[in-house]
Write a protein that binds this DNA or RNA. Structure first.
Lengths: 342, 342
DNA sequence: GTTGGCAATGTAATCGATTACACGAAAGTA
DNA sequence: TACTTTCGTGTAATCGATTACATTGCCAAC
């Protein structure tokens, strides 16, 4: 029932050698047309399937690529993966998923595991920017396995990345709040050691400065990407001498929490308080009080990362291209930052 | 820089054979303790890494398992995959992701591709129940590769599945609407050729009958899982002679669409119209008008599927266990079906 | 002193496919 | 006719690890 058919079986049946069978199947021009046809027919009739593992061992290419993300059950990462998978599918690559749960040790393990599994490339979003597991990255580079960062990248010479312009994202979101007439704009930031959060913050700051609004450190709150964290941040902000009248949050979840807390306190959104988030999570547009948010085009990011990988994979080892693709963020303006009064 | 170290390199260095090295590395008891230590030390110092592809070819086990889902960028499937990955990670399995986009042809391709890639098992949620690509499934079974269905399964003898009790899910959601005093409960159903939707519908129907409410075919609308479809369904339902006063939707997205349309028409939710959905998508609890929904515990479903796989993978070919795990759905009651008036 | 047994290691086949090199036959050339 | 190409296949090595079977040396038992 489950007999595995190999090229040797075909060879035996036709009284030729496995080498000839292999050549016939691979369209080697040195094979007589009649032989080729015979082999192809026989292979089909015997239901022959090439053993990809043998091929992988011989060629050194597994046709698998590894994708490492902090977690898969987030709309953003899932969409990126979707993009990667769709782009790579036609090229015969399979996508292996790893999660780090933001744990550097896990990240390092994943890198080693993927290299052990002989993947042809690694696409990842880093969890931690610490230099601790640099050895894992060095290992990848030494093995000459293409490495591409997406969204959250790390500065390593010769390594390509696909990110969005987080600075600009922070800038346009903040600018929109300013345009609505907000004077005291607070910022909920993520872990500043990650580039993305730092840049969103810098974009926010620059937008303030460009529009003659003083930057106030007290308005910047470092918080996690959670509803709870957003609520807590509002608690703190409203205690200030001059409470803010708007929030630009680096996380949609925190933005949601902020809105919930503001509602609880009967503060009118958007007329008395505007809110903008980041990521364009599905729920931001579903809410009745739909939330203004910066879209990161995750699908496109995934596709682009895959394309960058494909460009690199065939290059000889000597040529190393370092490609930095930066996608443009897009602000989706919704109710939470659209004042009805002037 | 990128020299691959093999057991032969170690053997040469120590003037022994690769066989001895292999045995030492594998803790074969026939190896002298001193030799083992020497080999282990040398392997470490040379930075030896076992070539998993060679191992896979020799053993016939790739340590990869394939997961096929309609799409990955849905909270439900992403969460299931998370569960699978977490459960399998400690066992050294890698997860390969495939998407069908609800396309039977793609589903069939994915099955063949995974078998070609010599995965050790396949966990999947079917896209289509049509018998067209039965040959792909037969292929999997013939190759004796463990196959496990989750959520959306197919009746194949000897194949295990992990699902939730969709009938009960439909029942408890409907029952809650009845408890709220709703008399005319409509149902937005998905594709009835899929078991899950049929069972949710049957649960709905049974709940009506058990509570002395007449079943009315006109109240059942087959719609897609989208916001738009939910809106359209409401349009139709409100045209009826006796419009319903509640909706149980098999999809949270359609439930959301329904709510939006009802709001547009100034129909008061939940006092004049109750709504319940299915899947417990994140947004259902984030909304101000939070949506009652049936939770499918996707994480647990993923973990359980992985466990069922692990049980099967080591069994000899002769023993085939067919395990049908049915998880209990849990109703999360929220504002959309909690009347404030009696 | 021969034989048996055991411990430790070596030899070589195997997994399935690819491919450099070799070789015989046919065909072309002088 | 004799020599060189060319064509189509065969031979055998290779990818890296595992493992059945063989071998070696040593010690004990008779």
């Amino acid at each position: 029932m489950s007999e595995k058919i190999t090229i040797y079986d075909i060879a035996k049946k036709l009284n030729i050698t496995a080498a000839t069978v292999s050549r016939a199947l691979n369209n080697n021009p040195k094979i007589k047309e009649s032989t080729r046809e015979l082999v192809l027919e026989t292979a089909a009739s015997m239901n022959y399937k090439q053993n990809k593992l043998a091929l992988a061992l011989k060629s050194g290419r597994s046709n698998n690529i590894g994708v490492i993300v902090p977690r898969i059950d987030s709309n953003f990462f899932a969409s990126v993966i979707r993009g990667i998978e769709e782009e790579l599918y036609p090229h015969g690559y399979q996508v292996i998923i790893c999660q780090t749960h933001e744990n550097p040790k896990r990240e390092s393990e994943n890198l080693y595991t993927l290299i052990d599994a002989q993947v042809d490339g690694i696409l990842m979003s880093v969890s931690d920017v610490n230099d601790e597991n640099n050895s894992a990255f060095r290992n990848v580079l030494e093995k000459n396995v293409p490495l591409i960062f997406f969204d959250r990248s790390k500065h390593i010479e010769g390594v390509s990345s696909v990110t969005i312009n987080d600075f600009k994202g922070g800038y346009i979101a903040t600018k929109q709040l300013i345009n609505q007439g907000c004077k005291h704009i607070a910022h909920l930031s993520g872990d500043q050691s990650l580039e993305i959060f730092k840049n969103r913050f810098l974009g926010y700051k620059q937008a303030l400065l460009d529009n003659g609004i003083e930057f106030n450190e007290k308005y910047v709150i470092q918080s996690k990407s959670s509803v709870e964290a957003g609520k807590e941040a509002v608690d703190i902000l409203l205690e200030l001498e001059t409470p803010p009248d708007a929030i630009f949050s680096s996380s949609d979840f925190a933005a949601l929490g902020a809105i919930q807390e503001l509602n609880e306190r009967n503060i009118n959104i958007p007329d008395d308080f505007c809110v903008a988030g980041f990521s364009n999570e599905p729920f931001t547009k579903f809410m009745e009080m739909s939330i203004t948010s910066v879209d990161q085009s995750p699908l496109e990011m995934g596709r682009m990362s895959a394309r960058v990988f494909l460009e690199q994979v065939d290059k000889t080892d000597t040529i190393k291209i370092e490609k930095k693709v930066v996608l443009a963020p897009e602000l989706h303006i919704r109710k939470s930052s659209t004042r009805t009064t002037s």
